[in-house]
């Protein structure tokens, strides 16, 4: 009996302590509900891929042999340019929740053909024909405003697809190869913006790719136009 009574008292005291701790938080003034707003943005970007990934090649038949699907290793980096758009949610004018977006990049610059092997056959890849598409998935970030200026940072996930043109040799003939690569990605979005009018903002954005085929494998940077508060 003594033990049961003591236990009951202890529980009541504990609840009282919790109440005292939580009450001040509830008493701070705040909106009755979160203030949310959607933003849409488009951007033009340059991109640098530090190390091109290995590409998957579909099965192919040449006059010399049948090649099963496999992976073809490449080397070197790639410069690209592209366009993109995305939608994000802002919460309480401070938090940003990037929702969905996409980018399309194409290679720029002059490149040597890459001579490599595909299961012992000589393959020739054309880095200048590379096209990359990113599907950007939700992330989370924060933004800070000062008058007409704004800074923001967010971490975001996504998937990236790339294709490259190539061919495999068999004697005197060359047979086209279908090459593609896909990866999960994580990127850090950093931007500095200036408001143009009440609903439009222009930003400089730098986006290190924390993971894309491998760790710290590149960056995108460019101009971004945002619509929203």
């Amino acid at each position: 009996m003594r033990t049961g009574r003591a236990s009951s008292v202890t529980k009541r005291r504990a609840w009282a302590v919790v109440g005292m701790l939580v009450a001040p938080m509830c008493l701070v003034s705040q909106d009755a509900r979160a203030d949310t707003d959607f933003q849409i943005a488009t951007h033009v970007s340059g991109a640098w891929l530090r190390q091109m990934p290995s590409f998957g090649a579909k099965e192919v038949t040449t006059s010399a042999r049948e090649l099963a699907d496999g992976r073809i290793r490449t080397a070197g980096g790639l410069a690209m340019m592209g366009l993109g758009a995305d939608v994000e949610l802002t919460v309480d004018d401070r938090w940003k929740v990037p929702l969905f977006g996409g980018n399309a990049f194409w290679a720029i610059g002059s490149y040597d053909a890459i001579i490599t092997s595909h299961d012992g056959s000589i393959a020739r890849l054309r880095p200048w024909s590379t096209i990359r598409g990113d599907l950007l998935l939700p992330g989370v970030g924060h933004r800070w405003k000062h008058r007409r200026n704004m800074w923001a940072a967010a971490v975001r996930t996504g998937v990236s697809f790339a294709t490259m043109g190539g061919s495999v040799a068999a004697g005197t003939e060359t047979v086209p190869l279908e090459l593609d690569a896909a990866t999960f990605l994580v990127q850090l979005e950093l931007e500095g913006c200036r408001r143009l009018d009440p609903s439009t903002r222009v930003c400089l954005q730098v986006v290190p790719r924390l993971y894309e085929h491998e760790l710290f494998n590149g960056v995108t940077f460019g101009l971004r136009f945002e619509g929203g508060r």
Binding site: V44, G76, L83, A107, G109, S110, D112, A113
Partner: peptide, 26 residues
């Protein structure tokens, strides 16, 4: 705005091209 900037960049940067050389890898 995005379209005009993009077109400007495309005009400046162009697309990827073959250098005419080969690089052996792997």
């Amino acid at each position: 705005l995005a379209a005009s900037v993009a077109l400007s960049l495309v005009a400046l940067a162009g697309c990827g091209s073959d250098s005419g050389s080969e690089r052996e890898v792997v």
